[in-house]
Protein backbone atom coordinates (compact mmCIF):
# COMPACT_ATOMS: atom_id res chain seq x y z
CA UNK A 1 0.00 0.00 0.00
CA UNK A 2 2.75 2.39 1.01
CA UNK A 3 4.75 1.56 -2.08
CA UNK A 4 1.71 2.38 -4.18
CA UNK A 5 1.40 5.73 -2.47
CA UNK A 6 5.09 6.39 -2.96
CA UNK A 7 4.75 5.50 -6.61
CA UNK A 8 1.84 7.88 -6.94
CA UNK A 9 3.76 10.67 -5.26
CA UNK A 10 6.73 10.01 -7.51
CA UNK A 11 4.64 10.11 -10.66
CA UNK A 12 3.02 13.33 -9.50
CA UNK A 13 6.42 14.80 -8.86
CA UNK A 14 7.63 13.79 -12.29
CA UNK A 15 4.57 15.31 -13.93
CA UNK A 16 5.09 18.51 -12.00
CA UNK A 17 8.72 18.59 -13.10
CA UNK A 18 7.74 18.14 -16.72
CA UNK A 19 5.16 20.89 -16.43
CA UNK A 20 7.72 23.16 -14.78
CA UNK A 21 10.19 22.53 -17.61
CA UNK A 22 7.53 23.31 -20.16
CA UNK A 23 6.50 26.42 -18.26
CA UNK A 24 10.10 27.64 -18.27
CA UNK A 25 10.35 27.13 -22.00
CA UNK A 26 7.11 29.02 -22.58
CA UNK A 27 7.92 31.96 -20.36
CA UNK A 28 6.71 34.39 -22.96
CA UNK A 29 3.16 33.00 -22.69
CA UNK A 30 3.02 33.97 -19.05
CA UNK A 31 4.32 37.38 -19.91
CA UNK A 32 1.39 37.85 -22.29
CA UNK A 33 -1.01 36.65 -19.67
CA UNK A 34 0.44 38.66 -16.82
CA UNK A 35 -1.38 42.02 -17.14
CA UNK A 36 -4.73 40.31 -17.44
CA UNK A 37 -3.96 37.87 -14.66
CA UNK A 38 -2.96 40.53 -12.13
CA UNK A 39 -6.06 42.65 -12.71
CA UNK A 40 -8.39 39.72 -13.07
CA UNK A 41 -7.29 38.10 -9.84
CA UNK A 42 -7.58 41.42 -8.00
CA UNK A 43 -10.93 42.58 -9.28
CA UNK A 44 -12.78 39.37 -10.11
CA UNK A 45 -11.38 36.30 -8.39
CA UNK A 46 -10.54 37.85 -5.03
CA UNK A 47 -14.01 39.39 -4.52
CA UNK A 48 -15.61 36.21 -5.75
CA UNK A 49 -13.88 34.12 -3.12
CA UNK A 50 -14.58 36.66 -0.41
CA UNK A 51 -18.26 36.57 -1.36
CA UNK A 52 -18.29 32.81 -1.14
CA UNK A 53 -16.63 33.13 2.26
CA UNK A 54 -19.21 35.71 3.40
CA UNK A 55 -21.98 33.31 2.45
CA UNK A 56 -21.04 31.29 5.56
CA UNK A 57 -21.19 34.31 7.81
CA UNK A 58 -23.56 36.89 9.18
CA UNK A 59 -22.23 40.07 7.61
CA UNK A 60 -24.03 43.39 7.65
CA UNK A 61 -21.19 45.42 6.09
CA UNK A 62 -20.80 47.59 9.21
CA UNK A 63 -19.76 44.96 11.73
CA UNK A 64 -17.10 42.30 11.15
CA UNK A 65 -18.45 39.11 9.62
CA UNK A 66 -19.50 36.40 12.11
CA UNK A 67 -19.11 32.78 11.07
CA UNK A 68 -22.44 30.94 11.22
CA UNK A 69 -21.78 27.86 9.10
CA UNK A 70 -24.51 26.76 6.73
CA UNK A 71 -27.25 28.75 8.41
CA UNK A 72 -27.70 31.16 5.50
CA UNK A 73 -28.20 28.24 3.14
CA UNK A 74 -30.64 26.37 5.37
CA UNK A 75 -32.67 29.54 5.96
CA UNK A 76 -32.68 30.24 2.27
CA UNK A 77 -33.89 26.82 1.22
CA UNK A 78 -36.15 25.90 4.11
CA UNK A 79 -37.64 29.12 5.47
CA UNK A 80 -37.57 31.81 2.85
CA UNK A 81 -40.84 31.49 0.93
CA UNK A 82 -40.15 34.52 -1.20
CA UNK A 83 -36.90 32.95 -2.37
CA UNK A 84 -38.82 29.97 -3.70
CA UNK A 85 -41.13 32.31 -5.62
CA UNK A 86 -38.03 34.04 -6.98
CA UNK A 87 -36.51 30.71 -8.02
CA UNK A 88 -39.69 29.75 -9.81
CA UNK A 89 -39.85 33.07 -11.67
CA UNK A 90 -36.17 33.00 -12.56
CA UNK A 91 -36.40 29.51 -13.98
CA UNK A 92 -39.49 30.44 -15.96
CA UNK A 93 -37.70 33.43 -17.46
CA UNK A 94 -34.46 31.54 -18.05
CA UNK A 95 -36.09 28.53 -19.66
CA UNK A 96 -38.11 30.63 -22.07
CA UNK A 97 -35.85 33.55 -22.89
CA UNK A 98 -32.51 31.73 -22.73
CA UNK A 99 -32.96 29.13 -25.49
CA UNK A 100 -35.40 31.24 -27.50
CA UNK A 101 -33.16 34.30 -27.39
CA UNK A 102 -30.20 32.16 -28.38
CA UNK A 103 -32.00 30.64 -31.34
CA UNK A 104 -33.35 34.01 -32.43
CA UNK A 105 -29.87 35.53 -32.23
CA UNK A 106 -28.33 32.82 -34.33
CA UNK A 107 -31.25 32.64 -36.72
CA UNK A 108 -31.28 36.32 -37.51
CA UNK A 109 -27.50 36.61 -37.66
CA UNK A 110 -27.63 33.80 -40.22
CA UNK A 111 -30.49 35.28 -42.24
CA UNK A 112 -28.92 38.70 -42.57
CA UNK A 113 -25.50 37.32 -43.35
CA UNK A 114 -26.36 37.04 -47.03
CA UNK A 115 -27.98 40.40 -47.50
CA UNK A 116 -26.25 43.10 -49.55
CA UNK A 117 -23.87 45.06 -47.41
CA UNK A 118 -25.72 48.26 -46.59
CA UNK A 119 -28.99 46.45 -45.88
CA UNK A 120 -27.10 44.11 -43.62
CA UNK A 121 -25.54 46.94 -41.66
CA UNK A 122 -28.97 48.49 -41.26
CA UNK A 123 -30.48 45.18 -40.18
CA UNK A 124 -27.74 44.53 -37.63
CA UNK A 125 -28.26 48.00 -36.20
CA UNK A 126 -32.03 47.53 -35.91
CA UNK A 127 -31.79 44.11 -34.29
CA UNK A 128 -29.08 45.17 -31.90
CA UNK A 129 -30.66 48.54 -31.17
CA UNK A 130 -32.59 47.43 -28.07
CA UNK A 131 -29.33 46.51 -26.37
CA UNK A 132 -27.44 49.61 -27.38
CA UNK A 133 -28.84 52.04 -24.88
CA UNK A 134 -28.54 50.73 -21.37
CA UNK A 135 -32.08 51.62 -20.43
CA UNK A 136 -34.02 51.66 -23.68
CA UNK A 137 -36.45 49.21 -22.12
CA UNK A 138 -37.88 51.94 -19.90
CA UNK A 139 -39.88 52.94 -22.97
CA UNK A 140 -42.02 49.90 -22.26
CA UNK A 141 -43.22 51.46 -19.05
CA UNK A 142 -44.96 54.06 -21.24
CA UNK A 143 -46.23 51.49 -23.71
CA UNK A 144 -47.63 49.23 -20.99
CA UNK A 145 -48.64 51.98 -18.60
CA UNK A 146 -51.61 51.07 -16.45
CA UNK A 147 -53.78 54.15 -17.07
CA UNK A 148 -55.48 55.26 -20.26
CA UNK A 149 -52.41 57.25 -21.26
CA UNK A 150 -50.48 54.05 -21.79
CA UNK A 151 -50.03 53.42 -25.47
CA UNK A 152 -51.31 49.84 -25.46
CA UNK A 153 -54.31 50.64 -23.30
CA UNK A 154 -55.20 53.65 -25.43
CA UNK A 155 -54.86 51.70 -28.66
CA UNK A 156 -56.89 48.74 -27.44
CA UNK A 157 -59.58 51.04 -26.08
CA UNK A 158 -59.81 52.94 -29.31
CA UNK A 159 -60.24 49.67 -31.16
CA UNK A 160 -62.97 48.67 -28.74
CA UNK A 161 -61.18 45.59 -27.44
CA UNK A 162 -60.84 46.99 -23.92
CA UNK A 163 -63.41 49.13 -22.14
CA UNK A 164 -61.19 50.21 -19.32
CA UNK A 165 -57.42 50.39 -18.96
CA UNK A 166 -55.61 47.29 -17.76
CA UNK A 167 -52.83 47.37 -15.20
CA UNK A 168 -50.43 45.38 -17.33
CA UNK A 169 -47.47 45.81 -15.00
CA UNK A 170 -49.29 45.51 -11.68
CA UNK A 171 -51.61 42.60 -12.37
CA UNK A 172 -49.75 39.40 -11.40
CA UNK A 173 -51.34 37.52 -14.28
CA UNK A 174 -49.93 39.82 -16.96
CA UNK A 175 -46.58 40.85 -15.44
CA UNK A 176 -44.70 37.73 -16.49
CA UNK A 177 -45.81 37.60 -20.13
CA UNK A 178 -45.01 41.29 -20.57
CA UNK A 179 -41.58 40.88 -18.97
CA UNK A 180 -40.74 37.86 -21.06
CA UNK A 181 -41.70 39.79 -24.17
CA UNK A 182 -39.45 42.69 -23.21
CA UNK A 183 -36.54 40.41 -22.32
CA UNK A 184 -36.88 38.59 -25.62
CA UNK A 185 -36.92 41.94 -27.36
CA UNK A 186 -33.56 42.62 -25.72
CA UNK A 187 -32.13 39.17 -26.25
CA UNK A 188 -30.30 39.84 -29.50
CA UNK A 189 -27.33 41.31 -27.74
CA UNK A 190 -23.84 40.01 -27.02
CA UNK A 191 -24.30 36.62 -28.60
CA UNK A 192 -25.97 38.08 -31.67
CA UNK A 193 -23.04 40.36 -32.45
CA UNK A 194 -20.54 37.55 -31.91
CA UNK A 195 -22.55 35.45 -34.38
CA UNK A 196 -22.64 38.26 -36.94
CA UNK A 197 -18.87 38.69 -36.72
CA UNK A 198 -18.28 34.94 -36.70
CA UNK A 199 -20.39 34.27 -39.79
CA UNK A 200 -18.37 36.87 -41.64
CA UNK A 201 -15.21 34.97 -40.82
CA UNK A 202 -16.18 31.71 -42.48
CA UNK A 203 -14.02 30.95 -45.47
CA UNK A 204 -16.04 31.41 -48.67
CA UNK A 205 -14.05 28.64 -50.38
CA UNK A 206 -15.70 26.12 -48.08
CA UNK A 207 -19.09 27.07 -49.48
CA UNK A 208 -17.85 26.85 -53.05
CA UNK A 209 -16.49 23.40 -52.28
CA UNK A 210 -19.84 22.58 -50.73
CA UNK A 211 -21.72 23.39 -53.94
CA UNK A 212 -19.38 21.16 -55.87
CA UNK A 213 -19.90 18.37 -53.37
CA UNK A 214 -23.64 18.62 -53.95
CA UNK A 215 -25.05 20.48 -51.00
CA UNK A 216 -28.58 21.06 -52.18
CA UNK A 217 -30.30 23.53 -49.87
CA UNK A 218 -29.65 26.06 -47.16
CA UNK A 219 -30.32 23.60 -44.35
CA UNK A 220 -27.61 21.21 -45.50
CA UNK A 221 -25.26 24.11 -45.93
CA UNK A 222 -26.06 25.26 -42.39
CA UNK A 223 -25.52 21.83 -40.92
CA UNK A 224 -22.40 20.74 -42.76
CA UNK A 225 -20.50 23.99 -43.23
CA UNK A 226 -21.80 26.90 -41.20
CA UNK A 227 -22.41 25.29 -37.80
CA UNK A 228 -19.09 23.43 -37.51
CA UNK A 229 -17.27 26.65 -38.37
CA UNK A 230 -19.26 28.60 -35.83
CA UNK A 231 -18.61 26.33 -32.88
CA UNK A 232 -16.41 28.67 -30.83
CA UNK A 233 -18.96 31.47 -31.20
CA UNK A 234 -21.84 29.13 -30.44
CA UNK A 235 -20.15 28.26 -27.16
CA UNK A 236 -19.58 31.92 -26.42
CA UNK A 237 -23.19 32.78 -27.21
CA UNK A 238 -24.44 29.98 -24.97
CA UNK A 239 -22.49 31.20 -21.97
CA UNK A 240 -23.74 34.71 -22.59
CA UNK A 241 -27.33 33.51 -22.93
CA UNK A 242 -27.05 31.67 -19.62
CA UNK A 243 -25.58 34.61 -17.73
CA UNK A 244 -28.11 37.01 -19.18
CA UNK A 245 -31.18 34.89 -18.67
CA UNK A 246 -30.34 33.95 -15.09
CA UNK A 247 -29.26 37.44 -14.10
CA UNK A 248 -32.49 39.19 -15.04
CA UNK A 249 -33.15 41.94 -12.50
CA UNK A 250 -33.06 45.43 -13.98
CA UNK A 251 -35.94 44.97 -16.38
CA UNK A 252 -38.47 43.66 -13.82
CA UNK A 253 -37.38 46.24 -11.27
CA UNK A 254 -37.79 49.09 -13.73
CA UNK A 255 -41.07 47.92 -15.22
CA UNK A 256 -42.96 46.01 -12.53
CA UNK A 257 -41.56 47.93 -9.59
CA UNK A 258 -39.60 46.76 -6.59
CA UNK A 259 -41.10 44.88 -4.91
CA UNK A 260 -43.63 43.83 -7.51
CA UNK A 261 -47.25 42.93 -6.82
CA UNK A 262 -47.39 39.57 -5.02
CA UNK A 263 -43.70 39.14 -5.90
CA UNK A 264 -44.95 38.16 -9.34
CA UNK A 265 -41.83 39.60 -10.99
CA UNK A 266 -39.40 38.77 -8.18
CA UNK A 267 -36.27 37.05 -9.48
CA UNK A 268 -33.32 35.53 -7.65
CA UNK A 269 -31.10 38.48 -8.40
CA UNK A 270 -33.76 40.93 -7.22
CA UNK A 271 -33.96 38.91 -4.02
CA UNK A 272 -30.20 39.14 -3.71
CA UNK A 273 -30.31 42.88 -4.30
CA UNK A 274 -33.07 43.21 -1.73
CA UNK A 275 -31.02 41.49 0.98
CA UNK A 276 -27.68 43.00 0.01
CA UNK A 277 -28.66 46.59 -0.54
CA UNK A 278 -31.90 47.33 1.27
CA UNK A 279 -31.50 45.06 4.31
CA UNK A 280 -27.69 45.02 4.35
CA UNK A 281 -27.48 41.31 4.98
CA UNK A 282 -24.50 40.70 2.75
CA UNK A 283 -23.87 37.21 4.10
CA UNK A 284 -27.34 36.11 3.09
CA UNK A 285 -27.05 37.85 -0.28
CA UNK A 286 -23.73 36.09 -0.86
CA UNK A 287 -25.38 32.75 -0.16
CA UNK A 288 -27.97 33.54 -2.84
CA UNK A 289 -25.21 34.51 -5.26
CA UNK A 290 -23.30 31.31 -4.56
CA UNK A 291 -26.36 29.13 -5.17
CA UNK A 292 -27.14 30.98 -8.38
CA UNK A 293 -23.51 30.58 -9.45
CA UNK A 294 -23.61 26.82 -8.90
CA UNK A 295 -26.86 26.53 -10.83
CA UNK A 296 -25.41 28.43 -13.75
CA UNK A 297 -22.22 26.35 -13.79
CA UNK A 298 -24.30 23.18 -13.87
CA UNK A 299 -26.47 24.56 -16.65
CA UNK A 300 -23.37 25.62 -18.58
CA UNK A 301 -21.82 22.14 -18.25
CA UNK A 302 -24.94 20.56 -19.74
CA UNK A 303 -25.16 22.99 -22.63
CA UNK A 304 -21.45 22.79 -23.43
CA UNK A 305 -21.57 19.03 -23.72
CA UNK A 306 -24.65 19.28 -25.94
CA UNK A 307 -23.02 21.88 -28.18
CA UNK A 308 -19.91 19.78 -28.58
CA UNK A 309 -21.98 17.37 -30.65
CA UNK A 310 -23.15 20.06 -33.08
CA UNK A 311 -22.40 19.47 -36.72
CA UNK A 312 -20.26 16.37 -36.28
Amino acid sequence: MSSLAAKYVRSRKRKAAIAWDKAKRMKVCYLFLLPHAVLFLTFYILPMFSSIFYSFTYYNILEPAKFIGLKNYTNLLLQDDVFLVAVKNTFLIAIITGPLGYLLSFGFAWFINELPRWIRTLAVVIFYAPSIAGNAYTIFSIIFRGDAYGWLNATLMKMGILYQPRLWLSDPSTIMPVLILVILWMSMSTGFLAFVAGLQGIDQAQYEAGYVDGIRNRWQELYYITLPNMKPMLLFGAVMAITQSFNVADVPMALAGFPSTDYAAHTVVIHLYDYGYTRFEMGYASAIATLLFLTMILCNKMIQSALRKVGT
Binding site: F40, Y44, P47, S51, F246, G276, M282, M296, I297
Partner: peptide, 12 residues
Protein backbone atom coordinates in the same frame (compact mmCIF):
# COMPACT_ATOMS: atom_id res chain seq x y z
CA UNK B 1 -16.14 33.96 -13.26
CA UNK B 2 -18.44 35.39 -15.90
CA UNK B 3 -21.33 33.75 -14.11
CA UNK B 4 -20.79 35.19 -10.67
CA UNK B 5 -23.18 37.95 -9.76
CA UNK B 6 -21.75 41.45 -9.71
CA UNK B 7 -23.85 42.83 -6.85
CA UNK B 8 -22.24 40.76 -4.12
CA UNK B 9 -18.70 41.22 -5.38
CA UNK B 10 -19.20 44.98 -5.26
CA UNK B 11 -18.58 45.15 -1.50
CA UNK B 12 -15.32 43.12 -1.40
Amino acid sequence: ALMFNGYVTAIP
